[in-house]
């Protein structure tokens, strides 16, 4: 465990907590894409099936359980508990355009042709694009609340920090996972436009609002 990975994980954890707090305190899921959150629930479920087959550490296991658990709570909040506040009219990204190609790719390009490994690969590929419905929603409504921006920033930073972690692990541990690295780069690139807006607007006290 190096500092980049630890801070990356903490950033991921923080993103999830920010999102849950935003929903709980405001009693609203306005501005949040339910589709992205469903994709994240699928990502965690398919990736962490190894909870049943291998043990890495108590840290690793508890984080996995937390990520899976909170992803379902989030989906429950959006589609049940705070459903009247869910803005489905603006959450219109067609997720099948992500799931089908990503599923096909995981089947074709993986480390090992086994069920668990294909599902792990699927989750890595899917995670890299899972934020697209959310980014699409922000661009469609042309705005994002500050709290939603903080959530997106923390969530995007996590994979960017993992890129540094992989550089570190390559040099100091000889560890290299091409699938994770390529997907991590794609994931981070997707956030670049948002990172720019976040730094130039949100950090200066303005909320993100895009020209119509």
């Amino acid at each position: 465990m190096n500092i980049f990975r630890l801070v990356g994980d903490m950033s991921h954890l923080l993103a999830i907590i920010i999102l849950l707090m935003k929903m709980w305190k405001s009693r609203s899921v306005a501005g949040i894409s339910g589709k992205s959150q469903i994709l994240f629930a699928i990502v965690f479920t398919t990736r962490y099936l190894d909870l049943f087959t291998s043990f890495v550490s108590i840290y690793n296991t508890s984080m996995k359980v937390f990520f899976i658990g909170t992803s379902y709570v989030t989906v429950y909040f959006i589609y049940q508990h705070f459903k009247p506040t869910y803005d489905s009219n603006h959450d219109t990204f067609r997720v099948e355009f992500l799931i089908v190609p990503v599923g096909g790719l995981a089947f074709l390009v993986n480390h090992e042709f086994s069920l668990l490994e294909i599902l792990w690969t699927f989750s890595i590929y899917l995670e890299s694009v899972a934020i697209l419905p959310q980014l699409f929603m922000v661009s469609k409504t042309g705005e994002a609340e500050s709290i939603t921006s903080h959530y997106l920033f923390a969530l995007g930073s996590y994979r960017a920090l993992y890129l540094l972690n992989w550089i570190y692990r390559y040099y100091f541990e000889g560890f290299f996972d091409l699938i994770a690295v390529v997907a991590g780069c794609v994931q981070t690139i997707l956030y670049c436009d948002f990172f720019y807006l976040y730094i130039t607007k949100v950090l200066k006290g303005k909320k993100i609002s895009l020209p119509a």
């Binding site: 990975r5 991921h12 190894d50 890495v56 690793n60 984080m63 480390h111 090992e112 086994s114 490994e117």
Partner: peptide, 10 residues
């Protein structure tokens, strides 16, 4: 090789 890949990251 046991054919099992261990993923130690989250």
């Amino acid at each position: 090789d046991t054919g099992k890949t261990l993923h130690d990251e989250l």
